[in-house]
Amino acid sequence: MADTATTSGKTEVWRTRAVVRRSTRAWRVRGSAAVVLVLVLAVLLVPPFAQLDQQAVDLTAKLRPPSWAHPFGTDDVGRDLLLRCVYGLRVSLLVGVVAAVVATVVGTAVGALAGALGGWPDRLLMRLVDVFASVPHLLLGIFIVAMFRPGVWPVVVSVALTHWLSTARIVRAEVLSLRSRPYVDAAISGGASRHRVAVRHLLPGVLPQAGLAAVLMVPHAVWHESALSFLGLGLPTHQASLGTLVQSARGSLLAGDWWPTLFPGLCAVVATLAIAGLAGAWRERLNPRRRSELML
């Protein structure tokens, strides 16, 4: 790429490298943001405003393939799958977001305490993390939901309690690294209390990392909810979630009807990719070398 500009009477030919990469990245971010926006608006606005009943059974129209009237087709009792997917995504995202937030809060608290206190509290908390981490987390999740009746909240608790470990480790490592920075020394020398150092200097330094971990955890939690529901341990089957939709479509898939399985699965994949795309852009921004446009 070259363009010309005239300064002080001389014509300069400007050359630059790698323009393409920058703009494709911008488009990827915009695409992800648009998809996330559409999904969020759909799950927030369609259920309260659309005068449609997702549970409306129409046995005369069961297992219709996709058409204009039913873009995603209908299921084995004639319910519209597009509407079921919107309700399913609503429940799945709710579970995902709440579980991710709870897991991040727990993980950040444990990690920050361990990193800031050091010594035996650090060792104790980190051994606790190791104990949790030594059990496969899907297994632990199944164990937790199995203790309760099927419903949304046991699934949230189960996913949250199995996912705070990595956040705790990330936050602890970050706090340990920040704590040894000279700017913390300077704050202590300036008379800052322990509380002030933790709240003003350490926590703001780790929150972006923790926030990023939370966003990346949302799709992961959605998949966990789907897995638990698919195994029949998560949500009751009449409650639409992406997992229960796929689970109840198993029978029709064997008969060759693909759409009741494909569309809920596609919803989960698209939501995951879009959220991960946004999180990727955020991670780029966190990188301090990227933050500065001028290299001096």
């Binding site: 000279p182 700017y183 020394d185 300077a186 020398s189 008379g191 200097h201 330094g205 301090p288």
Partner: peptide
């Protein structure tokens, strides 16, 4: 501790970003 003013070698690491 506030009777000391300290300045370190690397300003980038001494400043909360």
């Amino acid at each position: 501790r506030t009777s000391f003013g300290v300045v370190f070698q690397q300003p980038r690491l001494s400043a909360d970003p």
